[in-house]
Nucleic acid binder design. Structure first.
Length: 148
DNA sequence: GCCAACGTTGGC
DNA sequence: GCCAACGTTGGC
């Protein structure tokens, strides 16, 4: 799961009440589908820092809710306001996430690219901007070995 | 700050 | 339903 640390970082999540926050603001259908259809309470995710130097994986978070309507889409003052959805039939979804672990050293994008089994990740593919994506179990284990 | 790549929008 | 224009993303 990607976030710009200037906007919301892993350290921000750690400081949040109960180290837990909404992962709101996803407004891309493919990312929405992964949240809505694939995420389950108790799943783990890598927290990736984007649009910073260097970009990379900062640590691990846990999904601590089922997917539910992203209510920020209903708020006309929110920058991600989208009047298309309703409470009964929401267009956008989010989950709650809880801080689990901060790596001592960022696993940089550059490091990730050096491991061929990771190359199929959308993250590493040219031009891809998907902000939420699945990680295969083998990929998860390999990334864990890169963490310090 | 630049710009390539991509998704979305809307006129036709 | 095509596709040009536009806005956004995100590495560099």
């Amino acid at each position: 799961m990607k976030s710009e640390p200037d906007v919301f970082s892993l350290a921000d999540l750690r400081k949040a009440p109960a180290m837990t926050a909404h992962w709101d603001g996803v407004r891309n259908y493919q990312a929405r589908n992964y949240i809505r259809d694939r995420m389950r309470h108790g799943d783990l995710a890598y927290f990736y820092h984007s649009s910073c130097r260097p970009p990379g994986i900062a640590g691990i978070i846990e999904i601590v809710s089922a997917p539910y309507a992203d209510h920020t889409a209903f708020d006309s003052k929110n920058p991600h306001f989208d009047p298309a959805g309703t409470a009964d039939n929401p267009r956008w979804y989010m989950v709650d996430v809880r801080f689990r672990q901060a790596f001592d050293t960022l696993i940089t994008l550059d490091t990730l690219r050096q491991h061929p089994p990771l190359l199929p990740l959308p993250l590493l593919q040219r031009g891809n901007r998907l902000s939420v994506m699945p990680v295969l179990p083998e990929q998860w284990k390999l990334i864990e070995t890169l963490a310090r």
